[in-house]
C-alpha cells in the first residue's frame, strides 16, 4: 500500500508532470509565470485544491451517481477554490491581487477536474492523496521553472532581486504573451529531448 502511494506521488514529478506530459491547464501556466513569486503562489493554491478535492471525491466516489458525477466534482472543486480565495484574501492580499482572475479560474483548470475524473473517482483515499500531491508538486515545479526563465530573461530579476548589472537590457518579449507561448513550447521540446529513450 505504502509503496503504491509513493509510486502515485513520484509519477506526478516526471512521468506525468503537468503541463508538459499532461497538456492540461495551460491558462494559468502561461498567465501567472511572469514572476517566480506568482508562479509559486499559483502552484501552491492549485496543489491545495487538487489534494482536497481528490481526497473528498475519493471518499464520496461510491455515493456520487455516475450520471451527474461531473457536476458533483465541479461543486466539490468550486468549494475548495472558494476556501483558497478567502484564505488568500485574508493572509496574502498582495498576491491575491496579482493573481486576480486566475484564482477563481482554478475551478475550470482541467488538471483538477481531470485528476478527479481519471484518478480519484476510481481509487482509494491514500492513493488519491498521493496522486493529488504528486501532480500538484509537479505543477508547482513546472510553473516555477517557467517563471524562473521568464523572470530572469524578461526582467533581469529573480524573486525581485536583480541578477544582472544595471547595464542589462531586459528581454521584455519574455514577460509578454508571445514570450509565454514560445517559452513553454521550447521547454516542452527540451522535455521531449530528455525523455527520449
Amino acid at each position: 500500500m505504502a509503496k503504491t502511494a509513493v509510486q502515485e506521488f513520484t509519477k506526478g514529478l516526471w512521468a506525468e508532470i503537468p503541463p508538459f506530459r499532461l497538456v492540461l491547464g495551460l491558462c494559468p501556466v502561461l498567465a501567472v509565470t511572469k514572476t517566480v513569486e506568482n508562479g509559486i503562489g499559483m502552484g501552491v493554491a492549485t496543489t491545495f485544491v487538487l489534494i482536497c478535492s481528490n481526497i473528498l471525491i475519493s471518499l464520496l466516489r461510491n455515493v456520487i451517481p455516475k450520471k451527474v458525477r461531473i457536476a458533483c466534482f465541479i461543486v466539490v472543486i468550486a468549494t475548495f477554490v472558494t476556501v483558497v480565495e478567502l484564505v488568500m484574501q485574508a493572509f496574502a492580499y498582495p498576491l491575491f491581487l496579482k493573481l486576480g482572475i486566475f484564482i477563481p479560474l482554478i475551478v475550470v483548470n482541467c488538471i483538477v477536474l481531470g485528476r478527479a475524473e481519471a484518478f480519484a473517482a476510481k481509487n482509494g483515499v491514500v492513493a488519491s492523496f498521493a496522486d493529488g500531491l504528486g501532480i500538484g508538486v509537479g505543477f508547482t515545479l513546472s510553473l516555477t521553472a517557467l517563471a524562473i526563465v521568464r523572470e530572469i530573461l524578461g526582467n533581469g530579476t529573480f524573486y525581485d532581486i536583480p541578477v544582472f548589472g544595471p547595464s542589462f537590457e531586459p528581454f521584455s518579449f519574455m514577460v509578454q504573451a508571445p514570450g509565454a507561448f514560445v517559452c513553454l513550447g521550447l521547454m516542452l521540446c527540451i522535455m521531449n529531448m530528455l525523455g527520449k529513450k
Binding site: P178, G179, A180, F181, V182, C183, L184, G185, L186, L188
Partner: peptide, 9 residues
C-alpha cells in the same frame, strides 16, 4: 504541441 505553442507565440 511543442511547435503548436511556438506557432501560437
Amino acid at each position: 504541441t511543442s511547435i503548436g505553442l511556438v506557432t501560437a507565440g
